[in-house]
Amino acid sequence: MQTVNIHEAKTHLSKLIEQAVQGEPFVIAKAGKPLVKVVALNSLERSPPKRLGFLAGQIEVPADFDSLGAAEIEQLFGGGDLP
C-alpha cells in the first residue's frame, strides 16, 4: 500500500483518488506518521456484515447476572465482611 505525505497528497489528489477507485488504497502521513487510509467506498461495502445476536439460543445469561459478586465488590470498597 502506497504512503504519501500531506503535501504530495494535495499535489496529486486526483491521481491518488483514481488509484483508490481502481482498488489501490493509500495512506496519508504527516512527518512519516500514518494519519488516514483512503479507500474506495465500494470496497467498504464488500466487507461481511456484522452478525448481531449470532449466539442467540446457544448461551444463557443467569437471572442474577446484575448482582453476581455484589458482596465481594461491596467488601472491597469498604463494606461489610465477606460471608
Rank of each mutant, 00 (worst) to 15 (best):
I73G: 04
N42W: 10
V61Q: 02
A56R: 14
L52R: 13
S43Y: 12
S47K: 06
L68E: 06
P48E: 06
Q58N: 03
S43C: 10
A63P: 00
R46M: 04
I59N: 04
G69H: 03
D66V: 02
E60I: 01
L68K: 13
S67L: 12
L55D: 10
A71W: 01
P49H: 13
L44C: 09
D66P: 01
A63N: 02
I59M: 09
D66S: 13
A70V: 05
S67T: 15
R51E: 08
I73M: 12
A70L: 14
I59L: 14
G53W: 14
P49M: 11
F54R: 06
S43K: 15
F54H: 10
D66F: 02
A56M: 09
G53I: 13
G53R: 13
A56E: 13
P49K: 15
A63K: 03
R51G: 07
N42I: 06
V61R: 01
A63Q: 04
I73A: 13
P48K: 02
D64G: 08
E45G: 05
P49R: 13
A56Y: 09
P62H: 06
L44E: 11
R51N: 10
G69E: 05
F65S: 12
R51C: 08
V61T: 02
S47L: 10
E60R: 01
S47A: 10
G57L: 01
V61M: 00
A71Y: 01
G69T: 01
N42M: 03
D64W: 04
E60Y: 01
E72T: 11
L52E: 09
R51D: 04
L52T: 14
S47G: 09
F54D: 14
V61K: 01
Q58H: 02
D66H: 04
P49I: 10
E72P: 03
G53N: 12
F54M: 13
L44G: 03
K50I: 10
R46K: 14
L44K: 10
R46V: 06
I73W: 03
E45A: 12
A71Q: 09
A71R: 07
R46Y: 07
D66N: 11
G53V: 11
S47Y: 13
I59E: 05
R51A: 14
Q58Y: 01
G57C: 03
R46I: 04
P48Y: 00
L44P: 00
R46N: 11
A70C: 06
P49Q: 15
A56W: 03
S47V: 11
L68G: 03
L41E: 10
F65G: 09
D66K: 08
I59C: 09
Q58K: 05
E45V: 05
G53Y: 13
R46T: 08
S47P: 08
V61P: 03
S47H: 08
L68P: 02
S47R: 09
Q58V: 00
F65N: 12
L55N: 10
E60L: 02
Q58A: 05
N42H: 15
L68I: 15
L41H: 09
F54A: 14
R46A: 14
Q58P: 01
K50A: 14
D66C: 02
E60F: 02
F65V: 13
P62E: 07
R46W: 01
I59H: 05
L41Y: 07
K50H: 08
L52G: 06
